[in-house]
């Protein structure tokens, strides 16, 4: 007597309508690069080889918010040098592989605990706002949801309003995320000067995404190996909330992170059978729509068709 086949014990993918290694069109699509933007990645922490890899995988550009270097910087001059790196050197490295590099200026939430230093940094930011790759103020936000962090967050908002800048916002990690996101939304919603469609609230997850979208802001999903979202959970959120005002990013940095996480998301969308038009909207058209609200954003789509992976 033959043994009955246990439900679900067949090889992974053998019953998957998207994966047919010989003739299924969706399988062929999965072997094709799609152009995409990574709206949040910290390239100063990555190697030039990573730029090359991203270009090979279909990335056409990225935006890099100013962030914490892994240690607290000691003076405003450290930030000035960092801002020069973001507005000059990283553009050149990206350009070697045909990638457009954009950036955002701020003192991050973790170092914002030092109010005096933060105010000195905020004073020098206007010197960089006319640089051609600067999209706005970011990533500002909260880290441990303290009074000092909130104070500096509000002063960054004042700066953004004064110079008519877009805003990119970091929401806290893990147990602090829900509380911090709600506090950030309170501060944003309480400021009638802001245009909500020019504000991106990043690192949303299952318990925060609805609040951000319902209040009229853009939301970013960060694909991280352990914390934040996985590609599968990001696709779940797309299926639950739709593609409007949602972005996906790798937030690749100096810690455990994967700079090629956006292609992982693209593959997961395809494996679930979502149409190419939907995938393209999320990873390519949405970032362009959001960035286009910045006066410094200029982008010429590549004049070559999206290519099959070699």
């Amino acid at each position: 007597m033959s043994r009955p086949k246990a439900h679900g014990l067949q090889p992974v993918g053998s019953n998957d309508h998207n994966i047919d290694p010989t003739k299924n069109i969706k399988y062929r699509q999965a072997l094709t690069n799609m152009y995409y933007f990574d709206p949040h990645i910290h390239m100063v922490s990555r190697t030039t080889d990573d730029y090359e890899t991203l270009a090979k995988m279909g990335c056409v550009g990225m935006s890099e918010p100013a962030f914490w270097a892994g240690f607290d910087r000691g003076s405003v001059d450290s930030f000035r040098d960092y801002f020069c790196q973001l507005t000059d050197f990283e553009q050149k490295r990206a350009g070697m592989y045909g990638l457009k590099h954009f950036t955002w200026m701020c003192i991050n939430a973790k170092e914002a605990e030092n109010v005096q230093l933060s105010r000195e940094v905020i004073k020098i930011i206007p010197d960089f706002l006319d640089c051609p790759n600067v999209l706005g103020i970011g990533e500002i936000g909260l880290n441990k949801n303290t009074k000092n962090e909130a104070t500096i967050f509000l002063e960054h908002i004042d700066l953004a309003v004064e110079y008519s800048q877009q805003i990119l916002i970091h929401t806290p990690h893990l147990e602090d995320k829900f509380q911090g996101t709600r506090m950030i939304l309170d501060m944003l919603n309480g400021d009638s000067r802001l245009e909500r469609n020019r504000v991106l609230v990043d690192h949303v997850e299952e318990h925060t995404v609805r609040h951000v979208l319902d209040d009229g802001y853009w939301a970013g999903m960060t694909l991280y190996p352990v914390s934040k979202c996985t590609p599968a959970r990001a696709v779940d959120l797309i299926e639950m909330y739709g593609p409007e005002r949602l972005l996906v990013n790798s937030a690749g940095d100096w810690g455990p992170s994967k700079p090629t996480a956006v292609p992982d998301f693209i593959l997961e969308m395809r494996r679930r059978g979502h149409p190419e038009s939907l995938v393209r909207k999320i990873v390519y058209e949405n970032p362009i729509e959001f960035f286009s609200q910045s006066s410094n954003f200029s982008f010429t789509p590549p004049n070559v068709p999206e290519a099959a992976i070699q």
Binding site: K147, A150, R182, D186
Partner: peptide, 22 residues
Amino acid sequence: AEQIQQIFSRQYEESWRTKFGV
């Protein structure tokens, strides 16, 4: 997934701005 996220989250207090004075 959302419920489990909430279990591992600190509570939000609407009155936080008054408490902080910001």
